[in-house]
């Protein structure tokens, strides 16, 4: 339809966009509406949970309309120090932990994955150990992490790290093992240097596998941080949930769940988007 075939669309036309994607937009909206109705009926029948209308009423001010408020005047505008602050701040606090732990897990996971992918001996040596460690639930690491770091901040980061690293290691290793023989033959016949081989052949060829691992990793990391903050923390969205629950504010808990879901979804899309940037085969 557009004259510049294969290039960027000339201009974003909202009307055309809606006409083309009407089904993809309307169907989810209808499904969401039905789900909300069921929830409303469920809560008015059982009286155990606030329904969607009540949740919005109770959290509208300040939680929904002002995600970045800071309750304690003495902190100024920085809400990262905890206390009575908006959900935006709590989410940022959690995301910072995830960013640190996940970055470490990515770097070390990819390096370890490449190494055990290249060396069958090393793979066989560490595989049983990794298989056992990888099934340990994130929260079971918490006492260990607290014993090592004596502080809930780094302990949270450690839990992210130890949760996210396994799929990254294994998918990277599989990528290396599955590398087509043709690529290796090209490298051999050209006698590529180790550096050239790594950056021009090995790394690009494992990118799709690597990103499968990175995507699984970010999902797990986000799951783990919320749980870790609920058990032991003074900031973060997990802490917020636990705090709200203890003060009987179920509506706030539900709002936080929505936050967690949306942020997790966006993290997943973000990693997926990074993958399309890196692996542009076509």
């Amino acid at each position: 339809m557009t004259a510049t075939a294969g290039r960027r669309l000339p201009a974003f036309d909202i009307a055309t966009f809606f006409r083309r994607n009407s089904r993809r937009i309307i169907a989810p909206v209808v499904a969401l509406f039905i789900a909300l109705v069921i929830w409303q009926i469920f809560s008015s029948v059982t009286q155990s949970l606030p329904g969607p209308i009540q949740v919005i009423q109770e959290t509208w001010d300040p939680w929904i309309i002002c995600p970045f408020f800071v309750g304690d005047e003495s902190f100024g505008l920085n809400g990262l120090q905890g206390g009575d602050v908006g959900l935006g701040w709590q989410t940022i606090a959690s995301l910072i932990r995830v960013a640190i732990g996940y970055s470490l897990a990515s770097i070390i996971g990819i390096i370890v994955g490449v190494i055990i992918g290249i060396s069958p001996l090393l793979y066989q040596a560490v595989d049983p150990m990794f298989q056992v460690l990888r099934t340990v639930p994130p929260l079971a690491w918490l006492p260990i992490a607290l014993a090592i770091f004596k502080d809930s901040g780094p302990a949270g980061i450690f839990i992210i790290f130890v949760t996210a690293i396994w799929p990254i290691i294994y998918n990277t290793a599989v990528g290396v093992q599955q590398m087509p023989q043709d690529y290796k033959n090209v490298a051999k016949v050209l006698r590529l240097s180790g550096k050239e081989y790594f950056f021009s052949i090995l790394l690009p060829s494992i990118v799709p596998y690597m990103f499968t691992g990175l995507k699984l990793g970010i999902g797990l990391a986000w799951l783990a941080i919320v749980a870790a903050e609920m058990l032991r923390g003074d900031t973060g969205i997990g802490f917020y949930i636990w705090n709200a629950y203890n003060s009987g504010a179920l509506s706030e808990v539900i709002l936080a769940l929505v936050y967690i879901g949306l942020v997790g979804f966006m993290l997943d899309k973000l990693v997926g988007f990074a993958a399309t940037l890196v692996s542009s085969d076509k």
């Binding site: 043709d182 690529y183 692996s279």
Partner: peptide, 14 residues
């Protein structure tokens, strides 16, 4: 002794 491989063996990302 350069080889022209049966299935081209080109690097698809280049």
């Amino acid at each position: 002794r350069m080889v022209v491989f049966q299935n081209y063996a080109l690097l698809p990302w280049k």
